[in-house]
């Protein structure tokens, strides 16, 4: 079985946020006005979180790039009254925007806080519409959105592989954030395919997952040396 997953090496991550902006660009994530931003309404499917501890001069900081964990046991999908969020048979947790009623129950159910809501409809200046990615739909007002593991890229890669009459290779399907990361901290692939790097990395002794104790079985693994 294919199970798409991600390993993020926190020891390599520099907190540069390239993944964040790459995701915004790839997935047509709209920005909000400064005022709205102050009200906590920015959307960022990938968010580089910073965990700061200790005061000068003994401060430490750890960055946690945070996409959707694509949980194998996702609490978000169970609560959706209309099945507008679902997990597919390759483990990708997706959203059906045209069906979502905007109740935000899934957002509350997700312990990782990775669901974002369109409080207003997305706003693009006419010129900005030029840089929208035609492979990804623009969300409308009042629906939930979140990281899709760049699912559209999988569809395209499958299509291409089929046309070329070959199997899908690891490098054919890489999400935008993994592709752009300058330190290769984000590794993506099939967790169940021993030839993929993620399969090996998830066995690394440094591995942990966020809030593992909740039993959500996230498919995003983090690597971090414990000091």
């Amino acid at each position: 079985m294919t199970r798409w997953g991600m390993v993020i090496d926190l020891d390599r991550c520099m907190g540069c946020a390239a993944c964040e902006v790459a995701c915004k660009s790839e997935n047509n994530i709209a920005t909000v006005s400064p005022d709205q931003a102050d009200r906590g309404r920015t959307n960022s499917w990938m968010k580089v979180m910073a965990h700061v501890e200790g005061e000068f001069p003994h401060t430490e900081m750890q960055f946690y790039p945070r996409p959707c964990m694509h949980c194998d046991n996702p609490p978000c999908i169970k609560v959706c009254p209309v099945a507008a969020t679902y997990i597919d048979d390759e483990g990708i947790v997706g959203q059906i925007y045209p069906r979502c009623i905007g109740c935000r129950y899934c957002a509350n159910a997700c312990p990782y806080m990775v669901k974002y809501f369109n409080w207003y409809g997305p706003e693009w200046a006419e010129s900005e519409r030029q840089h929208l990615n035609p492979d990804v739909s623009v969300r409308s007002t009042g629906v939930i959105e979140k990281c899709t593991f760049c699912h559209h890229r999988l569809q395209k890669a499958r299509e291409e592989a089929r046309v070329e009459g070959r199997e899908l290779r690891e490098e054919d399907y890489q999400p935008a954030c993994a592709e752009v990361c300058p330190t290769a901290a984000i590794v993506f692939g099939d967790l169940d395919d021993a030839t993929h790097r993620v399969a090996e990395l998830k066995e690394d002794p440094r591995v942990h997952r966020l809030m593992e104790d909740l039993g959500t079985q996230p498919k995003v693994y983090y690597l971090r040396a414990r000091e």
Binding site: P81, V82, A83, A84, G102, C103, I144
Partner: peptide, 21 residues
Amino acid sequence: DMGRPDRVMNVLFHAQVLSPL
């Protein structure tokens, strides 16, 4: 409270019985 009250009937059309809602 719904973002899309226009789609309220989806609750019937696409009912997902696991949802407490």
